[in-house]
Design a protein around this nucleic acid. Structure first.
Lengths: 254, 254
DNA sequence: CGGTAAGTTGAAAAATCTCAATCACGGTGG
DNA sequence: CCACCGTGATTGAGATTTTTCAACTTACCG
């Protein structure tokens, strides 16, 4: 029995980088409740739609933006999947997050008017372009927008602290378990199965995010499979024992 | 020759928790350029001072706020030194940051109207209380304030990504070197020596921040001392070879 | 159908942790 | 004033986890 892909079919759009001047309709977007418009009334939404006037397609493997580039806009993922990574001068490279539909990219750029990380599409994707200066203007007018924008930034900070906890305190199995639970929870919030999924990232990218080598990630997947927690076949995943995964994250070290 | 403490004398204020209704004077505060008022003109500063009307003393070891408490205000450190830590349901505990004069505490609380971490004073400290709803009101009026607030949040995100890089990619020596360089750089920005300092936190707290056990931190300090990079005597530190520390952070893994 | 990138597995090496003993220092009370 | 106590720091030795290096398999793309 084939595992249902939350992202299948791979949504092969024509791989152009041209901005699509299509009118965005936040009001009818099914990401409304996950994205920037949370809490906005119908009349305010019309304003937001004026702001978010442009879309952009990003084919798999391409950059949405690069470290060092001038920061102009935030991006809301419409479809697809991204990773963000920071790198130091030497070759070090760290995946700082994976973003799916409804999530915002580029918040790090506000600090210095330049992006501080790379954003790369892990599958053919499209984003809504949110010019930042216009967002600031509009959020002075609409308290609700101002407030939800602040909440989104704050949520990113909270998320980052959770990752620090993971990187600082957990061992390999716990890290991978926490990662998978987070992933399935976000997929579920978007209407996908909580147990069947297709990983859009390589073992190396997972490892980079979790502070592990790719071999360790692979071994840990194998161990989870042996223990009957899940079925793993390359990037196809089926979670068999959610509770056991949860227990791994909670009960260790005690 | 005694090492000059950037924080000495320990500024023993009377250890009350009572809000001090003293008028704050951002305009004459020597943290002006590090704190929220960056970029504000004299006339706007007057407004900000209306906002930041209260101070609060936090004796060493006391909490400024706790995980789960209702979020009402941000806090700007005036004097002293704080740590923030997140903990999971089980006993796990992770220090997510150390804050010194001019730095903001509580940004994580915006996301859900509740604090997501504990803030603990590591020495007798005092903070300016910034009621959050008033900050939102005021930042709709003053574009400059709005913009610098966004920058501060974004900077926190960038900082967190840097910590992820550290936790995910670096070994013990590199982590400690990066930590010390960051610390001295921030002290220097506040007019203290870049080479002599007194650590306000225990080895365990450093270890928690860096994802290491306290023994590993201690051993690494000893190794740095043997290698002539610094003098370490309990919490008294004197950096002897800044460049070598920097090289440790940059040149490894290549 | 072949080449390449990604994934798996094993064995040995390295880093870090754990446990345990000891030392240093600041504060307290006799 | 000094001995004592408790917390924090140091150091050693052995255990554990993760990495490294290498060989091999699998899947996908043209």
């Amino acid at each position: 029995m084939p595992i249902t892909s939350p992202f299948a079919p791979p949504a092969r759009t024509c791989p152009d980088m041209l901005p699509e001047p299509l009118k965005v309709a936040c009001a009818s977007c099914n990401l409304r409740e996950l994205c920037l418009p949370v809490g906005l009334h119908a009349r305010d939404l019309a304003q937001l739609e004026g702001l978010v006037a442009k879309r952009r397609s990003v084919p798999r493997g391409e950059h949405l933006f690069r470290n060092g580039e001038r920061f102009e806009a935030l991006y809301a993922v419409r479809t697809g999947f991204f990773k963000t990574c920071v790198g130091s001068e030497d070759g070090r490279d760290q995946v700082t997050g994976f973003q799916m539909a409804g999530e915002l990219l580029g918040l790090d750029g506000i600090s210095s008017d330049h992006h501080h990380c790379d954003a790369v599409a892990l599958e053919d994707s499209s984003v809504c372009v949110i010019p930042y200066d216009q967002l600031e203007d509009l959020s002075r007018e609409f308290t609700v927008l101002q407030h939800s924008f602040h909440k989104i930034m704050s949520r990113e900070i909270v998320r980052d602290h959770g990752v620090m906890l993971l990187l600082g305190n957990m061992r390999a199995e716990e890290r991978l378990a926490a990662f998978l639970l987070n992933l399935t929870q976000r997929l579920q919030a978007r209407g996908f199965s909580a147990s069947s999924l297709v990983l859009r990232m390589t073992r190396e990218e997972i490892g980079s995010y979790l502070g592990l080598k790719l071999e360790t990630v692979s071994r840990t997947f194998s161990k989870f499979q042996e223990d009957g927690l899940m079925e793993v076949k390359q990037r196809q995943l089926r979670i068999l024992d959610h509770e056991a995964l949860q227990a791994l994250v909670n009960d260790s070290h005690c």
